[in-house]
Simulated scan of single mutants.
Amino acid sequence: MATRKKTADLADVLFPTKDEQDFAESILSIPPEQRKLHTETYDFTVETLVEKLDDGSAFIPNFQRKYVWSDSQASRLIESLIIQCPVPVIYMNQEQDEKLSVIDGNQRLTSISRYLKNEFVLKGLTAYPELEGNRFHELDPRFQRHIQNRTLRCIVILKDTHPQVKFDVFERLNTGATKLTPQELRHGLYYGDLIREATQSVSSSHLLSMLDIKVDKRMKAEELVLRFWSLDEGFDAYRKPLATFINDFADKNRALNPQKKAALKMSFQAALDAVHGLFGDLSFRIFGKDLKVQSTFNAALYDALMIGLSRAMKGKGIKVMSSAHACQVLAGLIADDAKFRRAISVATSDDAQVKYRVTAITEAFGN
């Protein structure tokens, strides 16, 4: 039995449970009366939609995947408009300034806009092969008007919808070949001063090298900065799920004054420097008393070290110790404190788990 428990404890460390993106749980954390999705349906003409994209009243946010359709795929869509074949619904989000961001429909809208701007010729048509090789301006004016007057059904998620409900809808519509990460969704839904500061903090710090990431294509480091800020500022009020907690923080802090920007940047850099100074290349990694790495980056340990040391600095400061001694102290926590080991490996977003691991680090390294 003892051997089985040891292997189970090791498995907990090496194979942490990923329960932090439980979107169903996120929705259930909202009062029932706020879980409703508020929408309006519009039938916009093709001409109107292209005009909206051109004047900026509608836009494709930068979290959307890049345009990938071939000219043949785009041509088939134009042909569908001509033969009045139904086109799938386009989903949009109403921003606070009334602009409409495209949630689902980027490829379709971009294809239509490109054709009306004469950026490609029709090719690969099956219903009207006679139109092959024509740009928009080369079509008979009657075809041009027919395309421009076609209506596309657009469902707009209104701005009075609860932000977490919007986030859940984004996730449900996130069905591309490469699914967007929660941070990529967050980047589009809550974009503002806080997101920009997170991006800047990543580029101006050595976080990427500490994570051993050369190019952060999926915004992992940016999410970790937001994760630190939200927990550092709201630690005592933390309630799971963690994804919702970060979302709420991002939504409330879209607009920041210069003083808040400076304070956030300073708090993150100070905590990161403290971690690196104590643990060096072993930062955020699970390792044994022999200092051999057992598991690479661990997000729960990241919380414990960043928030724990930040809280220590806000108190009486961090104990003076060598890096070698600090690594042995942490290795001891991981090896000998079953509650700490569990807090960085199982149900890591639970309130008690977050608070235990952070408090354990504050007590171990704080004066």
Results as ranks from 00 to 15, higher is better:
E138D: 07
I155A: 00
D104E: 10
Q64M: 10
I112L: 05
R76I: 11
P88H: 02
F120H: 09
T110W: 01
V89S: 10
L81W: 03
R135P: 00
K99T: 15
I103K: 12
P86E: 01
Q144A: 01
Q144I: 00
F59W: 10
L122N: 07
H146I: 02
S101H: 05
K166C: 10
D97F: 05
G105E: 12
K166T: 15
D97C: 04
T151H: 06
D54G: 09
D54R: 14
S72Y: 03
S57I: 04
N106E: 12
F170Q: 09
K99Q: 13
D104M: 08
S70I: 07
N106P: 00
S113H: 14
N149L: 10
P61F: 05
E132C: 03
Q144V: 01
G133L: 03
I83P: 01
K52T: 02
K117L: 08
E171K: 15
N106Y: 11
R114Y: 12
Q84C: 02
E171P: 01
Q84S: 11
C154H: 08
L131I: 07
R172V: 06
V165M: 08
N93D: 15
N118V: 09
D160Q: 14
L116S: 08
E132V: 06
I78L: 07
G124F: 07
F120C: 11
I90F: 12
A74K: 07
N93C: 07
E95M: 12
D140A: 06
W69N: 09
D168A: 15
L116I: 12
P163K: 03
E132R: 04
S57D: 10
K117N: 15
E79H: 03
K52H: 14
Q164M: 13
